[in-house]
Amino acid sequence: MKEVILHLENVWKIYKMGDVEVPALRGVTVEIKKGDFVAIIGASGSGKSTMMNLIGCLDVPSKGSVFLKSYDISRLPESDLAAFRGKTIGFIFQQYNLIPSMSAFDNVLLPLEFLEYDDASAAKRTREILTMVGLADKMHHRPTQLSGGQQQRVSIARSLVANPEIVLADEPTGALDSVTGKEVLELLHRLWKEEGKTIILVTHDMNLAKYARTTIELKDGQIMRVVENHGVKK
């Protein structure tokens, strides 16, 4: 049995909108194993992004616990949590979320600057990773000078640059056409196969979910079922 890298224990997330309470997650318990490729699927509003934010330590649960590599994230002080997040998790967002005033190179470099890498090895690593995603010739372009697919590849490079164990992708193809979306998915798949990363993909697109080995289906903030797809091989 593989090591559990992520463990959600009876997690509730309740958003307060004035007097109204919106329960986005209702008692979610799930374990994710190291090296797995997980798809979280469900209709819009089912709580996928909320779950993703909790897994990524961007938010804390209203009730219950999130354990990441056996740390209880709601007990970590802010600065440790930030450093932990920087080292352990790479984020890929639907809207790429690149910093518009910085070049592709500087965007990818940024996580290493927060981790206080020395300049030479940070630059070397950044070049390597941008080359790996096929943007060796676009390093000094600004995000606005790149296509959507290229921007998403910059964002993937940024998520990988610090060599995190877990990559979280929230609807990474949502803003892309289907061909480019497929390319991005294949890039993620390759990462999983070749680098052994734990990949967690949020999507409402069943066509993309078939790349994953484990599928978690959410509905109204609860887990409906967890399906293992043994057809997906490394």
């Binding site: 990524g56 961007l58 802010e78 600065s79 930030a82 450093a83 997040r85 920087g86 080292k87 984020f91 979320n97 690149l98 910093i99 940024l110 996580p111 927060f114 981790l115 940024r158 610090a162």
Partner: peptide, 16 residues
């Protein structure tokens, strides 16, 4: 604000 959120997601501490 958005950029601050991005920076925090990729490892920025409050102090940074």
């Amino acid at each position: 604000t958005k950029e601050i959120g991005i920076m925090k997601a990729i490892g920025a501490r409050n102090a940074d």
